[in-house]
């Protein structure tokens, strides 16, 4: 099922939490939802799940508006702080959720067993949720979101509180699920978005500020290609002069004069690699390192949201 968000808006008093955002998510796509605290991520997710009322615009899932309230059973939702009935044992809780999501009674034990296996809850399944650690509670939260095999998964910070091994497992799980389902997940952990998501959406103050894959975002924010090189057996000063003189090179920085390290920024829409290599070959310099410098997602994020 595709999700189409059309000019969605929500205000709290005078403050616009979500300010007319529009985007589409297709089946088989994992969308990473990024933004600083208070950007409107959670509000948007709550509106998609029809938990809070929509002030403006609409969310259309599979051709139907969520305002009808009929779409809840197609959505699996993991709320932000993962609220659970602490007094219930894990198995009972999952059975309760399955029954509420209209899983046929005969299939409930099977689904619960699958979820327990999938989320690694086997050891803890008879404990009360209150007795579980944060990581295990998070797994229960994921299990309850997926219990009815929903078409759409909305996960608000799914990996908080998990240990590194579990994070890898959950990411893998989300990737797998993402092949047939529509997934929207929000997170603060930027490498996670790169590892899991097909597409990244950054919002700030209720507005979309970036939309694309990690690569396209990088290209957009970075502009020119940057490489770091190391040249052995060369006089720093003459190497600097020669490099600056190349037609494709925009700017040269000496990082470490004694070791011959430079940072080179190409001119717009040009790559300097070839020219640099030929220059070194001509002068018998040894080009011992050449590292394309990637802008980190963190920097893009900071650029777009700090203003």
């Amino acid at each position: 099922m595709d999700i189409s968000i059309q000019n969605l808006g929500k205000s709290y008093g005078l403050q616009k939490a979500v300010d007319g955002i529009s985007f589409d998510v297709k089946t088989g796509e994992i969308l990473g939802f990024l933004g600083p605290n208070g950007a409107g991520k959670t509000t948007t997710m709550k509106m998609i799940c029809n938990y809070i009322t929509i002030d403006q615009g609409d969310v259309i899932i599979g051709g139907k508006s969520v305002k009808t309230g009929e779409l809840k059973k197609y959505i699996g939702y993991l709320p932000e702080n993962n609220p659970l009935y602490l007094e219930m044992p894990v198995i009972d809780y999952l059975e309760f959720c399955a029954a509420l999501q209209q899983v046929p009674k005969a299939q409930i034990p099977d689904r619960v067993r699958q979820m327990v296996r999938l989320c690694g809850l086997n050891v803890e399944k008879h404990k009360k949720i209150a007795e579980l650690s944060k990581g295990y509670r998070q797994r229960v939260g994921l299990a309850q979101a997926m219990i009815h095999d929903p078409e759409i998964l909305i996960l608000d910070e799914p990996t908080t509180g998990l240990d590194p091994n579990q994070i890898v497992e959950i990411r893998e799980l989300i990737r797998q699920l993402g092949r047939q389902k529509t997934v929207i997940l929000s997170t603060h952990i930027l490498p996670e978005v790169e590892a899991t998501c097909d597409r990244i959406l950054i919002i700030n103050r209720g507005k979309i500020v970036a939309d694309g894959t990690a690569d396209t975002l990088r290209k957009q924010s970075q502009g020119q290609q940057v490489i770091r090189i190391k040249i052995d057996d060369a006089n720093t000063e003459s190497a600097f002069q020669a490099l600056s003189g190349l037609p494709s090179v925009g700017m040269v920085d000496i990082i470490d004069g004694t070791n011959g390290r430079f940072e080179i920024q190409s001119k717009p829409e040009m790559t300097a690699n070839k020219d640099i290599f030929l220059l070194c070959a001509k002068n018998n310099w040894i080009l011992s390192e050449s590292i394309p410098f990637e802008t980190k997602l963190e920097d893009i994020f900071r650029d777009l949201t700090l203003n």
Partner: peptide
């Protein structure tokens, strides 16, 4: 208070 109402009301119930 605990927020479980959010979990409950986003299930297929009115």
């Amino acid at each position: 208070k605990t927020g479980t109402i959010e979990m409950l009301l986003t299930k297929a119930v009115t």
